[in-house]
Structure formats: C-alpha cells, structure tokens
Simulated assay, not measured.
Amino acid sequence: MTAAPAPATALRVLIHGGGIGGLTLATALARRGHTVEVAELREELDALGVGIIQPTNALHVMREIGVLDACLAAGFAWDTLTIADPAGTTLAAIPQPRMADAPAANGIPRPALARILADAARAAGARLRLGTTITELKDDGTGVDVTLSDGGQSRHDLVVGFDGIGSPLRTRLYGDTYAPEYTGFANWRVTVPRPPEVRGVVMGTAGPEAKALLTPITGELMYLGAVFAEKEDFRPAPERAHEQLAARLRMFSGPVADALAAVTDPSAVVYSRISQVSVEEPWHVGRVVLAGDAAHASTPHLAQGAAMAVEDALVLAEALDAEAGVPEALTAWEARRRPRAMWVQALSRAVLRQETGTPTTPEEDELLKVGVPGAAHVLAQPY
C-alpha cells in the first residue's frame, strides 16, 4: 500500500453516491487528511447484482487504497481468459496482463466488495451518511453550500457525483441532455456453483447468435452472464426468468448447460438493460464534478466499468495533491481521464455490435483491430 501524502490544504469534500467509485474516492481522500462525507440514498450499503470482475488496473487501485488483500481473500483471482465452443471445448487460452504487482484479474461478489470498500472508507475517517441525497446545491465560486434530504446543511470545497448512470447530480447540472441511452441489448446474470475446472473466465461463443460468460467469484461460486438484443420494454417473467434465459442459451452444452441446470429459482436471475452515457461537455461545472458512470457509462464488454470508476477516484485524489487549487485539479483530472474512459466506452460498444452481428462503423472497425485481448494490454498501462 502506498503511503498517502498529507495535503497542503485539507479540503472538505462531499461525495454523492456510495458505490464502488464513491467509496474508493472517500478512502483515497480521507487517507490524505481531507474531510470527507458520502451522501448515499440507500439505507444500507448493500449491493445488487451478482459478481464483478476486477481487472488488473482496478486491482492496482485497490492496492493503492490498501484493500487488495481483502479483495483477493473474498474473491477468486485468475490470469487466463479461456475461449470455448458451445460444447465447452477450449479454443484458446489467453494469458491476461498484469499491472505492476497486481494480479491479472479477480472475480468478487458485489456485496463483499461493497463491505470491503465501506469498511475502508470508515477506517480512513470518512463519514457515510445513508438514506440521504442532495436537495439543494449552490456553488458561489469559493465553495459549495449543500442541503441534504435528512436536513443536513454544510459547505464544501468540492462536490463529486459518483451517483451512477441515472445520476441526479448530472440532471441538476445539465438537465436531460445526457440521459442514459439504451443500446438495444440487455445483460442476464445468475450465480451458480463453480465446478473445479472453471478457474478463470470462460467465454463460450456460438457466433453472433449468443455468447455466455462463466466468471468465478469465490472458491465455491461463479456467475453465468449473457447479453442479448431485447426490446426496451421487455422484462423477464417473474415466474420463469430462468427458463427464458435457458431458452436463449439453448445452443450451449457442457459447462454452460450444467450451470443453467443448477438454476431453479427464477428470482435468482438478474436482468439489466445495457445503457450508456457520454457527457460531452466538461465533466465539472465550477466545484461540482461528475465521475464514473455519471459521466461516462459504457457497455460491459471490456469488464471495465467499475475499473474506470476507481481509476477516476484515485486520479482525482492525485490531482488534488498536485494542483494549486480545486479548479485547476478538476481541469487536470479530466485531461487525464477523458481520453482513456471514452476509448473504453467506444471499444466496448464496438465489441457489443461485433458480437451480436450488428453493423459497425468504419471508426468502430478500426477500434476492433485492437480486440478484447489487445485492450487488456492497453489498459494494463499506467492511467
């Protein structure tokens, strides 16, 4: 763990959103001696969904904030991506790159990661205010006066919106200009037992018709994920969601079919539409800044959404260390982050189109020359 430098001037920072990015930033800033509050609408810092992949660049951030060992202990690390046919026969085994001394990748249950990051933020000295959100905000150029829905009123040097793809703070800044854009595709995921032979991500492909992903998240569990084109108003039937998923993956046998056979509870299936957000204007207005999915949500095809958020967090903390004031830090931060985050978004969308047989643009064709394996090497470079 890198020792956090003491700030020249301790700042008062409010983080709107207690997800992966917000809690990472809270830890990074509080460890540097800043006064940090996190306003989170949920009453508890639980996490919906199944598991999440932490690629090597995300794990590098976890090392920097002191929680890498906890993440590895709670999850399942691996270093090889396996490509398989619908029957489960291996077509290729691709070693994944490492960033510095971080492992190549780790799968972890989302609730476990939420607990680890919340514990780290509190231990660093951040205050987590649950069940509250911003109701009023006024930036006078030298600070931001905030009123929360729990009645709290305070003044901050910086307000950071890590409040997700549906960001209320983004709406406050830009209205509906950057509402989430549905891509036409949705993600199906379900947690199942992990067989011993699945020791890393296994990507089963059946051409453009379907792709299934098996991702270990503990020694005992993995999740099965699949992406399909779905109408925007479609929702799985509550009583037979598992059957609908099985029907979509009917061309698979082997480990994918075995995983599906283990799913008997339709409520275990997690369905989420895939949308994206691209804030084309500056991500900061005065002393209020958007980060993570609030600024640049992408499709999950590079497994980099949460990684981009935690990179945003650490780089923002570093920019506040390096620059003379908050406005200068926000400008420098965005100059570092925008090219990398938007490249991830563009390539992720191109991969989605390619894998589902959707026509791609010439620009996307150029990006696809890098490919998913190539992208992993690009993103293992310093951010």
Results as ranks from 00 to 15, higher is better:
M1N: 07
M1G: 12
A4V: 08
A6K: 15
A6M: 10
R12N: 10
R12P: 07
L14D: 01
H16L: 09
T24W: 03
A26M: 11
T27H: 12
L29W: 03
G33T: 13
H34R: 07
H34P: 04
T35Q: 15
T35L: 09
A39V: 12
D46C: 09
A47L: 01
V50P: 12
I53A: 14
V61N: 12
M62L: 15
M62W: 14
L72K: 03
D79K: 10
A87D: 03
A87G: 14
T90S: 14
L91Y: 11
R98W: 14
A100W: 08
D101I: 12
A102D: 06
G107F: 14
I108L: 14
I108N: 00
L113A: 12
A118E: 14
A118F: 00
R122L: 08
A123N: 09
R127F: 00
G131H: 11
G131M: 14
T132P: 06
K138T: 12
D139Y: 06
V146E: 13
T147H: 04
H156C: 08
V159C: 02
V159T: 11
G161N: 10
S167G: 15
L169Q: 01
L173F: 03
G175V: 06
G175T: 07
T177A: 15
Y178W: 07
P180V: 02
E181R: 15
Y182L: 02
G184C: 01
W188H: 02
V202Q: 05
P208G: 14
P208D: 12
P216R: 03
I217H: 11
G219S: 00
Y223G: 01
Y223R: 01
G225Q: 01
A226S: 13
A229L: 01
K231C: 04
K231I: 11
F234A: 09
A241S: 04
E243F: 00
A247K: 12
S253W: 13
A259R: 11
P266N: 10
S267C: 03
V269T: 00
R273I: 02
I274F: 00
P282H: 00
H284K: 06
V289A: 15
L290Y: 10
L290T: 15
G292L: 06
A295S: 13
H296C: 11
A297Y: 04
T299G: 05
E311H: 12
E311D: 05
L314N: 09
V315P: 04
A317L: 14
E318G: 08
A322R: 12
A324W: 09
G325N: 15
T331Q: 09
A332Y: 05
W343L: 14
L347Y: 00
G357I: 06
T360P: 05
T360N: 03
L368P: 07
L368E: 02
G371R: 10
V372K: 07
G374D: 04
V378L: 15
Q381P: 06
